[in-house]
Amino acid sequence: MSSSKRVSTAPAAPKSPTVLAPTLVIGEHAVLTGTYLITLGSNTVVHPRTKLNSTYAPITIGNNCIISERSIIGLQSPGSDQGMTIENGVVVEVGAIVEAKSIGEGSIIEVNAKIGKHAVLGKHCKIGPMCEVGEHEIVPDFTVLFGNGMRRIDRSGVEDLKLKMVARQVEILRKLIPNNLAKFK
């Protein structure tokens, strides 16, 4: 779509193998590295300058997800090569570092949060800004991490509403982010 004359800042590493859904929105300056497979689902938005690293394990991201800029997805050091699965409707905010084994549907990883290696996040969790989930930790469904490591279970029961909100946000981002799907195929 946009054929910028600027040279891409991404290293000239071999393209990582990808399976990209046709309705995916991915910014030109997103960085996909690594040798394992990266799978991105339909209606998912990958912002520019997002880093997806499949050097140590494959990455699978579901539908209707939003992966924000300067977030880092994928193992950053050797570990189990089981791979990472991010389910549908997950929002990863700016600057978050996600090395989890799986992240349940509708979870939100807030700004600069950290999900440790091989952690398992349940459905509809919210990891607050700057909060951290330890390595191999298992976080039950509907857990909210906030403040200085405080935790609670969200019983408001509005998860469907939140998924709808994410879908609406995706629709807006689709108009705002210049898509360059071809570059990553």
Binding site: K126, G128, V144, F146, G147, R152, D154, R155, S156
Partner: peptide
């Protein structure tokens, strides 16, 4: 009343 930060709601 809803809390956007920790998802608490006066419904609880």
């Amino acid at each position: 009343l809803n809390c956007a930060h920790c998802y608490w709601s006066s419904k609880e």
